[in-house]
């Protein structure tokens, strides 16, 4: 059993020259404190044994409902959160236990764009200051060079040079998200995490920002981890997609395989629940019973079994491993591991 486990994690995170980001058996348990003495009385298993690899220039989409652990995973990968267990590699270097001092060298290669551009931009800084701040910390550029860079970034994201002097409140939500992107990309990172970067935007603006992110990826050869709950958005932007449920990966595969031939019953239900605008093709909906169980007390065996229409006895006992079913198509479900 131990060998197959090792083989499994090797196959999903196989090391090659093209890999930029790799995580192995990563876990994040948040302690729950209780009682008068604030003892730890349990753990929220936000991320529970996840392994994956992202190739250079690739976009890996991560979908899941609230509480699935997708944001925690993203934050661990760029070391905004320390993992409880597991390893993180960036450019083939183990960055799991690097000190903040040493991490700073890597920070210029890894950036994140958050969901809420109202909260993530300091309202007391001008747009110019906001974009120049990372340059000031991470580079030796002169004042004039920083200004030039800020102007070129603003133009790259579709804003104007004279917007430098303005403050975040003078912009709409979509424009603020453009500022966040300009700020993240100013120091030429290799890897960018988008944590629900378009969820707060109206659809017409969402399309503008998604197109912008795709253009910038081509132009700057960026690698993306795109976290979102909207399956259509993730399909649009991703090359591969990971579906998370209660801190674990249920299924990970190239985008076409996930959307055209989903294997995991959860992925199937998730896809069937998305309302679509094609009124002539009514799909059979798989309505899941009940709610997501609490991540502090996940079901035994397969985490999805309490809502799974296909659950059988074995699912209560054995936790299914993430195994490769077809080329690059991994699924963690007992229906497929015989």
């Amino acid at each position: 059993m131990a060998t197959t486990l090792e083989e499994k994690s090797r196959s999903i995170t196989s090391v090659d020259q093209d890999t930029l980001v790799r995580v192995e058996n990563i876990k994040k348990y948040f302690p729950i404190k209780g009682g008068i003495l604030k003892h730890t009385i349990g753990h929220v298993k936000a991320v529970d044994d996840v392994s994956l690899a992202i190739k250079k220039g690739e976009t890996l989409g991560v979908v899941g409902e609230s509480g699935s652990g997708k944001s925690t995973l993203g934050r661990m990968i760029i070391r905004l959160l320390a993992p409880t267990e597991g390893k993180i590699y960036f450019d083939n270097q183990d960055i799991t236990n690097l000190s903040n001092e040493k991490l700073r060298n890597y920070r210029r290669d890894m950036q994140i764009v958050f969901q809420d551009p109202f909260a993530s931009l300091n309202s007391k800084m001008s747009v110019g200051q906001l974009i120049e701040e990372p340059l000031l910390i991470q580079t030796n550029l002169s004042k004039v060079e920083r200004k030039e860079k800020a102007i070129s970034m603003l133009e790259k994201v579709g804003l104007r040079a004279d917007d430098r002097a303005k403050y975040p409140h003078e912009f709409s939500g979509g424009q603020r998200q453009r500022i966040s992107i300009a700020r993240a990309l100013a120091i030429s990172p290799k890897f960018v995490i988008g944590d629900e970067p378009v969820s707060a935007l109206d659809v017409s603006i969402q399309a503008q920002v998604l197109n912008l992110m795709a253009d910038l990826q081509d132009e700057l050869n960026l690698t993306y981890l795109f976290i979102a709950h909207d399956l259509s958005v993730v399909k649009h932007i991703s090359d591969r997609v990971a579906v998370m449920y209660l801190g674990r990966i249920a299924e990970i595969a190239p985008k076409e395989a996930i959307y055209d031939n989903p294997l995991h019953p959860y992925t199937q239900a998730l896809l069937s629940s998305v309302p679509i605008t094609d009124i002539d093709h009514k799909r059979e909906k798989i309505i899941l019973k009940g709610d997501l169980p609490s991540p502090s007390d996940p079901p035994s065996g397969c985490a999805f079994r309490t809502r799974c229409p296909m659950a059988h006895d074995r699912c209560k006992v054995d936790r299914p491993e993430l195994l490769e079913k077809k080329n690059g198509h991994f699924v963690a479900c007992h229906l497929y591991d015989r």
Binding site: S172, Q175, I205, L210, S232
Partner: peptide
């Protein structure tokens, strides 16, 4: 029409989404 074109679709793939220029 602009709204409908700017929607990413689950059924079809497209490289670029239609956009409505500017903001509300």
């Amino acid at each position: 029409n602009g709204l409908l074109e700017s929607l990413p679709s689950l059924d079809q793939s497209s490289d670029r989404l239609g956009t409505i220029k500017g903001t509300v």
